Simulated scan of single mutants.
Amino acid sequence: MHNTVKKVLLVITMVTLLGGLFTGILTYSNIGLSDTFVRQWAWSFVQAVCVLFPLGVGVMWVMNKLVAAFFTGFSTLNKNLIFGLGMAIIMEAIMALSTTYSNIGIGDMQRFGNAFLASYLMVLPVALVLSPLMTLLVKPKLDAFLAS
């Protein structure tokens, strides 16, 4: 298999696994395990990928610039951890907004706000645990593979 195809498939797999996990948690928080859970989760996942993938690239670029500018004396490991934690906080907020909008809508702003906050607070600990693991274990291997 061509190396570029392998790289694209790896990125798609990572996006699918992480995006699927996070939108699943967010959808569960919004609507529970109802009859429509799988349909709502799938729709939330598609929306999150369409919104988050392009937005995520921009957020990553800005976050990299901010970490490089403000944490100049820090080690690469510490910068990577700060980057990962910042990305988790920002991207989960965006994903929670997207998923809550998909599942709840904005007709009742108080209900939307409550559902957003509940889902964000439910998924954030998972993201904050996975972020350092991804930064320390997966990202170096992924960077090396993508650079090859």
Rank of each mutant, 00 (worst) to 15 (best):
N64E: 15
N78T: 11
N78Y: 14
A42M: 14
M109V: 12
W61Y: 14
F53I: 02
W61S: 13
I89A: 15
I106H: 00
A93Q: 09
T72E: 10
L117A: 07
M60S: 14
Q110R: 15
F70H: 12
Q110F: 11
M109T: 11
L66T: 05
A93D: 09
A118V: 08
L97R: 07
P54K: 03
T72L: 09
W61N: 12
N114D: 09
I106T: 02
K65A: 14
V49P: 00
V46I: 12
G58T: 02
M87Q: 07
D108H: 00
G86N: 06
T72K: 15
Y101R: 05
N64K: 15
G73R: 08
L97I: 13
I104Y: 00
V49D: 00
A118W: 08
G105L: 03
A96L: 06
A115V: 06
Q47D: 12
M91W: 07
G107R: 00
E92R: 11
I89Y: 14
V46E: 11
M95S: 14
M91K: 04
V49G: 02
T99G: 03
M109Q: 14
L52I: 12
G58W: 02
W43I: 14
M60E: 13
G86E: 02
Y101H: 09
V67P: 02
G58E: 01
V59C: 09
W61K: 15
L85M: 13
P54V: 00
M95V: 13
F112L: 05
G84M: 04
Y101L: 12
A68L: 10
V62Y: 00
K79W: 01
C50P: 08
I106A: 04
K65E: 11
T100Y: 03
G58K: 01
R111H: 06
I90G: 08
A96G: 05
N114L: 11
L66W: 02
R111D: 04
C50K: 12
F71R: 01
N114P: 07
L55R: 03
L66E: 03
K65C: 10
G86M: 03
T100A: 00
G86W: 00
A88R: 09
P54S: 04
I94D: 09
L66D: 01
M60D: 14
A88C: 07
T76A: 15
F45H: 10
A88V: 05
L117Y: 04
